[in-house]
Nucleic acid binder design. Structure first.
Lengths: 122, 122
DNA sequence: TCCACTAGTTACGTTGAGGTAATTGGTTAC
DNA sequence: GTAACCAATTACCTCAACGTAACTAGTGGA
């Protein structure tokens, strides 16, 4: 008998998995990983597709994802510079769950808007 | 010919679905909805289970979820006061995706920690 | 010669998220 | 009758997140 599954739990404040949840349960992360699911993309492309994101926040988001091993950074020695980002294997396993979140928001927003109106009218 | 699916997209900054994504793609939301998937719970229970959350943030999180129609609030006219929170039908459809996110964080945290160490050592 | 192009980085100011602690209301205990 | 108690909310303050804008590098083109 051996317990091979470590008892991580995001519910415990001191559990490292909490830091990972905080990173992935994030608006920009969900959008970035969703887009990168279609294949590698340049920094500029991501900035265009993630409408409204600032360069600073995109840089930080991508660096954090790279640090956690969810994406890889491909730098080309060209002028002007070209950098492409790509989901790793680990990142790929996160693509479907995060895409599901984006799809949920789009699918149910009409109902949510009605609920908000009703709530605010009370 | 009719286009029944509205073309919402979280990628557009002005799309309302973006506000919904911002709400659900959130650490505390993911944890709260995951816990509430086990059945209705009192405020105090949630505060205990969502280890580390402050009363203020829990209140705000729950109020926002109620506003969007993801949970309902049951108030009992007792002393001391008792309030229970419960997922709505809409909230239930979000339980699995958000639980998946929590599970992902717990399942892959070991690998993530290794990646972080490697990155920081560069 | 000087500007554009790309992927950043940095400085600075503002906004918002979050924690701590006091407060409310009504009932029980002394 | 007044002090204690509990669930829940609010007031206040702090700090981190975010946006804007300026700046970097090196080459190619007008």
């Amino acid at each position: 008998m051996s317990q091979t599954v470590p008892d991580w739990s995001v519910l415990m404040a001191s559990c490292p998995s909490r830091t990972s949840l905080a990173r992935i349960a994030n608006k920009w992360t969900a959008m970035a990983v969703s887009v990168l699911g279609n294949g590698r993309a340049r920094f500029g492309d991501l900035k265009t597709q993630l409408d409204g994101i600032s360069g600073k926040v995109l840089t930080e988001t991508l660096r954090d994802l790279e640090r956690d091993g969810l994406i890889t950074r491909h730098v080309y020695a060209e002028v002007p510079p070209r950098v492409e980002y790509e989901l790793t294997e680990l990142g790929l396993t996160l693509h479907e769950p995060l895409l599901a979140l984006c799809r949920w928001a789009e699918k149910h927003i009409a109902e949510v808007l009605i609920n908000r109106e009703a709530y605010d009218a009370r």
